[in-house]
Simulated assay, not measured.
Amino acid sequence: MTAPEKTVTPAAGGPIRVMVVDDSAVIRGLVSRWIGAEPDMEVVATAPNGAQALRQAEKTQPEVVVLDIEMPEMDGLTALPEILRVARGVRVLMSSTLTRAGAEVSIKALTLGAADYLTKPSSTRESGAVDAFRTELLQKARALGAARRRTQAIRQATAASIRAGAGAPAPAATNAVPGREIRLRRSVPIRPQILAIGSSTGGPQAVAAMLGPIAARLGVPILVTQHMPATFTAIFADHLGKTTGVETAEGIDGEAVRAGRIYVAPGNRHMIVARDGDRRVLRLTDDPPENFCRPAVDPMLRSVAAVYGAASLVVILTGMGHDGLAGSRAVVEAGGRIIAQDEASSVVWGMPGAVATAGICSAILPLGEIGARVEAFVRGPLLAGGLQ
């Protein structure tokens, strides 16, 4: 009789533990070699289908799983919730083709708890596409693993504080950067006449969760720039419209910006707002990527600051990098307000962390509290200086 296999408990330090799941032996081999070559990551398991992945996840307790969607025996969408159940705190990175069907399944996976997604190249012979896939995969796996550890550390510190009788730490403390105090910015409470939202990794589910309960009551136009490729943004807009009950679509060049509508930046186009006589309209541009992104948040926010000034309200949600920081500075200089998602509730605290630590936020809040604060701002007093 063999001894039972032991379940691994991930160490606090050391390389990020990754499991690779794909029915293609070629893709499994490539991804495993890429990750294995990184000094701060290691492959702890591989699997050709969801059923084997579930067993491996329970045994090895990976911190990040790269999970293919289309597989025999048990596909990725079926395996996803089970992997999340057996591997404590795991971050799952879905891998799909860049097709409408792949986009629809990827968005559904995000609603089921996946942290992010990758679009696989159509062929491993396309060197440029393969290189781009490798770069994106390593960046996202590294960021998700690091964020997972930070989140676990915050939760453990909070639990330890409560057990010690000290109560939960103050909200700002959960977002603290060692040696740097986060300060909030005081602002004149001018009623916003537009809401602009920027997000990336973890953003689709965060945007939907934030806007779902409040969007129909806000009565202002809502602009959303989410880092996503073409095809995916249309599916995201459709999902967001169903979640909020508000008319939602990808932005169209030249269309009027109307209250009570959500506009999503189309993949591979920057979306900005501009004046056209007495009207405010959307413009889509093919300007170069900013912060390696198109659409990018910064162009949208710069335009919002220029057109709406102090009547601008911005929310920066979970995401890698610092896209949105420069645009948020422009909004603040124009008198507008910024809300950032806190670290504990973010999938990755890159974008919201950048604006939070810059000292330009009016509030830094858990995702579940942002909607109420947005609604309070929108229902606030309309003081001199707001657009009429």
Score class of each variant (00 low, 15 high):
P221I: 01
A172N: 07
A358L: 09
A274S: 11
A132Q: 12
R134I: 12
A306P: 04
P121E: 08
I252K: 15
R155L: 15
L137K: 01
A109V: 10
R125A: 14
G89N: 14
P299R: 08
G335C: 01
A173H: 02
I16G: 12
A160P: 01
Q56P: 02
M210I: 00
Y308S: 00
G102L: 07
A306S: 11
A51N: 03
G165I: 13
R91N: 10
E63R: 11
L93I: 05
I339S: 01
R155Y: 07
R379N: 11
E58W: 07
D342M: 04
V331Y: 00
P10N: 11
L195K: 01
E104G: 05
M41E: 08
R185D: 09
D131R: 15
D276E: 14
V246T: 02
E343H: 02
I16E: 06
K6V: 11
H322M: 05
L118I: 13
T285R: 04
R280G: 03
T231I: 15
G198P: 04
T60D: 08
I162L: 06
I235C: 05
V378N: 00
A356S: 14
G89L: 11
P352K: 06
R149W: 03
E104Q: 15
M271G: 11
L144H: 14
V264L: 08
M300L: 15
G267S: 09
T78C: 10
K140M: 12
P39D: 09
A340D: 04
R55M: 14
